[in-house]
């Protein structure tokens, strides 16, 4: 249902018809004053239409208007942070990824090699020193023989020290 203001606006514009028009005009307390007000509104509308039209611009003015608009837009865009490029470059290029992968593989191989070979050293001996894997003497020939192993760090010499072998006469020193 329309309010009084809506009906009043429609009446001023001459859009009320029929029964609605009759009922609205009957509800007006002072119809003569209302008619006068409607005529003033029509006059004001006609005046505004006549005098407030957008002035036609000459070519020079239109050019200046366009130029000022462009300057204003550019000035406004300079104040805002630059937009991110569509294809953002990262440090992880394909080439660098390949190099990084190959270097990681190399480090893995080297570490794995040293870990594996380190486990194979009996008695924890260094791989750079000669290692005694086993040693034995014939107990029937030398029943009291004992064997010990040590390393001399001076010349990286590995020594197999056998005590208790049967002593021999000096003629056995012959060439």
């Amino acid at each position: 249902m329309k309010t009084f203001e809506e009906k009043w606006t429609a009446w001023l514009d001459g859009q009320l018809t029929g029964k609605e028009l009759v009922e609205f005009e009957a509800s007006l307390p002072d119809k003569a004053a209302a008619e006068l007000e409607r005529q003033d509104a029509h006059k004001l509308g006609a005046f505004l239409k006549e005098h407030l039209e957008a002035p036609a611009m000459t070519n020079e003015e239109f050019f200046h208007h366009q130029l000022r608009g462009q300057i204003e837009r550019e000035s406004a865009s300079e104040g805002r942070p630059a937009e991110a490029p569509e294809a953002r470059e990262t440090w992880w290029s394909i080439g660098r990824l390949l190099w990084t992968g190959a270097a990681s593989l190399a480090i893995f191989c080297v570490c794995t090699y040293f870990v594996i070979t380190g486990d194979n050293n009996p008695g924890g001996q260094s791989t750079y020193l000669t290692q005694i894997i086993n040693a034995r003497v014939d107990p029937a020939v030398s029943p009291n023989a004992t064997i010990s192993i040590f390393e001399s760090k001076e010349n990286r010499v590995t020594v197999l020290w056998v005590d208790g072998l049967q002593s021999l006469p000096s003629e056995y020193a012959a060439k």
Partner: peptide, 18 residues
Amino acid sequence: LLLETKTKLSKSSPLVIK
């Protein structure tokens, strides 16, 4: 046979047996 041993001989690391 007086003595028998098995060794892993490395370069620059001589083996000495008493």
